[in-house]
């Protein structure tokens, strides 16, 4: 009795309790709103997405139409403000159209790996026992490969192309997502409120939906967003090696490789696709950091 009286009298504590009364997602949103860097980064990524998806609205030149007469024009050339590439194609158009494949190959594998790996990990963590052992031992085998080695091995053997790139990167990112999902789920499963739900007769599916999923999805999601930046670098890297998207498609890694020889003639133009990979990857990294802080996740 005395305790609650002192608590109520303490304004700081009262405030804290009032805040605790708010829903989790509301607090996440409030923290996110205060975080100027993350908001700016999300805005940049949103803008990039719009420009890439609606590339025809933002460009005047055909990204595939080249001309020997205007090869490797420098940045600032009238009519081609970012210059032209090694076969005279407008670089600005190719950067925007190229973003479509680069973003797709950077985001799709993480999304697919999140679906597959998240499902398997949560299942293994919740079921425990034999199923857990089976899933985790298989994961250990995939874990024996550094992710880039696995991706290169798969695309190297199955052949280049967007589909194989997405397949290879998805397989490479499934094991880390399974590990995180399994460990988070195992932790939550042993918490008191899950025991309480079970003791009060809740069905397995209900426990899974209301108690486990709502508590594990946050950390898994945050972890997956941190993989997007790596995936963008790796996907472009595969194209850079000639194992990803095939010419004449526009894709940042492939453009970087094609422009490599042009670095002597037009260094700034040759470096630009790399700048796009860097900016996108950094934005995803900063966004992931911001989400992690806002959602108060520790991994």
């Amino acid at each position: 009795m005395e305790d609650s009286a002192t608590l109520a009298a303490d304004p700081a504590m009262a405030l804290k309790r009032a805040q605790q009364g708010k829903s989790y997602w509301r607090r996440v949103w409030e923290r996110l709103r205060e975080d100027k860097v993350t908001l700016a980064v999300i805005a940049v990524l949103g803008m990039l997405l719009i420009m890439v998806v609606f590339a025809p609205w933002f460009t005047i030149h055909d990204p595939y139409a080249g001309s020997v007469l205007r090869r490797l024009k420098p940045v600032g050339t009238p009519g081609h403000w970012l210059g032209t590439d090694e076969v005279g194609r407008d670089l600005w158009s190719r950067m925007l159209y190229g973003g479509r494949l680069s973003l797709l190959a950077g985001v799709a594998p993480v999304f697919l790996a999140l679906l597959i790996g998240g499902f398997l990990g949560i299942l293994a963590g919740y079921a425990g026992g034999l199923l857990n052992s089976a899933v985790m031992r298989l994961t250990d085998v995939l874990y024996a490969f550094p992710s880039i080695l696995l991706a290169i091995a798969i695309t190297g053997i199955l052949g280049a192309g967007l589909q194989n790139t997405i397949l290879a990167l998805t397989i490479s990112f499934i094991p880390p997502i399974i590990r995180i999902s399994e460990s988070v789920t195992t932790q939550v499963r042993h918490l008191d409120f899950v025991e309480a739900a079970r003791a009060s007769g809740a069905r397995r599916l209900t426990i899974m939906r209301y108690h486990i999923l709502s508590n594990v999805l946050g950390p898994i999601l945050v972890y997956a967003t941190s993989l997007i930046s790596i995936c963008i670098i790796l996907a472009a890297g595969l194209s850079f090696l000639g194992l990803g998207v095939t010419p004449p498609s526009a894709e940042w890694g492939l453009m970087l490789n094609n422009l490599r020889q042009g670095i002597w003639a037009s260094p700034l133009v040759a470096a630009l696709p790399g700048v796009m990979i860097f900016i996108t990857s950094m934005c995803f990294n900063l966004m992931s950091d911001g989400l992690r802080q806002a959602m108060d996740v520790r991994l």
């Binding site: 890297g237 850079f240 950094m282």
Partner: peptide, 11 residues
């Protein structure tokens, strides 16, 4: 961690 290292090599 955000730099594509193959690009850094070229630069």
């Amino acid at each position: 961690v955000s730099l594509p290292h193959y690009w850094v090599g070229i630069v």
